[in-house]
Design a protein around this nucleic acid. Structure first.
Lengths: 256, 256
DNA sequence: AATAGTTAGTGTCAATCTAACACTTTACAA
DNA sequence: TTGTAAAGTGTTAGATTGACACTAACTATT
């Protein structure tokens, strides 16, 4: 795969794949093994899933391909957010060693176009494919040192996610089809790293019209069962501006 | 320049440069001549200023370089907004003819990283350089057919500008150091293509604290002279989130 | 059967912000 | 002196925000 001659040696895509469960916001990483590692410690390290772009492929297609190969999923939220092109972004010895084993032209200058993906991590069955033997979900509080400039890319992605979640109804991409109001609030609180008022949150979400209340309720919980909701996708269809005020209390604005 | 061997034949930057005067929002375009034009009509056409990225150069540096060569300006607002990589983005015969005359490898697959620049167009003295003989300011209502996928890039830039102007205080980059409230309102109205209420606009801007009222007033006008303001750059320093609610009345939100 | 424990779900009020709306002021020109 | 043109100003009703505490519904335990 990596030695496929139709792959453009100068342009890659990398995917910052976020997932969520009741526990934490998580990042999907792949583990790499350096062929000619000098020490035991240099033996392996983590990276964002990514690949060179095929010459006949659009950037979005390349990102979808990486995501599909890794997770088996298609049609999920995948959004370009930034290109990275520092000439020194590939300079660590580990990175160069790995490239020597895997690329036709290991010294080529590579620009990468970074994508952010949002997945309900319970949907993911890591695929028996080129990446998956080594893929893991890491809580964002425990992201290790990554290959290349992938730490910088991941942090830009997280910043972009925090901004977008307050403007576009994308949080739902991280939740299952049916979820409770508490699930949704916990997700917002996790991403924004801020406590939100339960009543105000509920009011804001319900007034927005983007939630469909279901008749179904939680089963088998030892307390009052919560109602399930689902996301009203059709609500946003045909709306030219996707701009929605989902900002929560306490957000800095000059107008408060 | 274009035949410089250190230029990476696979990655370019393109700059969507917006300017403003009392008349209209304008786009800075360069005119190209096709070396082996088949007909008179194919003789010339317009494009966004751009260039291949040098192998030792960061993407931001490449964009700054293009801007500097064209306008002589440095330190102006220049923001990456999207990468474009459709494999068919270079397929029109005109484009291929031009590349043949100008690139070492005219068939190379090129991905471009697009930047948006905002300039007070009165500051620009088009430079006697590689581009400038042929550069013009075109009102955005009269943008002609452009090279490659540059129409698509320009339209994405305009959309991005419309969104950002309501979130970040960037409109000022298009105005001179000193401007009147009417100048600022006209700029917003032009970009957003919407009329705004004079009193509400004034109040919103003044309450935001991002304007410094000057004692200086207009001279030589045949009506009550307007006060000048300048933009309070220091206001935004050290603010981690650049998010500011500058949205004007009538913006679609689900929360109205 | 009663009680304890746990989370869901609900309402009000003061303060602020928004959107709509029209007249007075100040300069120059005629 | 009068006319013309743009600057500059205030109020009000309605909506939104942010702060705040109790009751309801279910299970597990005794």
């Amino acid at each position: 795969m990596a030695l496929n001659p139709s792959l453009n040696p100068h342009v890659s895509v990398d995917c910052v794949i976020f997932g969520f469960n009741r526990d934490a916001l998580r990042l999907l990483l792949i583990k790499r093994t350096v062929p000619n590692a000098v020490t035991e410690l240099d033996d392996s390290y983590y990276a964002l899933p990514g690949d060179l772009v095929n010459d006949s492929e659009d950037l979005n297609q390349a990102a979808s391909r990486v995501l599909h190969e890794l997770t088996g999923l298609q049609g999920i939220y995948l959004q370009q957010f930034q290109a990275f092109g520092d000439p020194l972004r590939i300079s660590k010895p580990k990175d160069r060693n790995w490239l020597k084993g895997v690329r036709q032209d290991p010294d080529a200058r590579v620009i990468t176009v970074a994508y952010m993906a949002l997945i309900d991590s319970k949907k993911v069955q890591l695929q028996p494919g080129s990446f998956s033997k080594e893929a893991i979900w890491v809580p964002i509080s425990e992201v290790p040192e990554l290959a290349f400039d992938h730490n910088e890319i991941y942090e830009s992605a997280l910043t972009a996610l925090r901004e977008r979640i307050q403007i576009q109804p994308i949080a739902f991409e991280l939740l299952p089809e049916k979820f409770t109001m508490a699930d949704l609030q916990l997700l917002y609180e996790t991403i924004l790293e801020r406590d939100l008022d339960k009543r105000n949150f509920r009011r804001k979400m319900l007034n927005s019209g983007i939630l469909i209340p279901l008749t179904e309720k939680q089963l088998g919980v030892s307390n009052k069962p919560a109602r399930f909701y689902s996301y009203n996708r059709t609500m946003m269809e045909g709306v030219e501006s996707q701009y929605i005020n989902l900002r929560m209390e306490g957000t800095f604005t000059l107008f408060q």
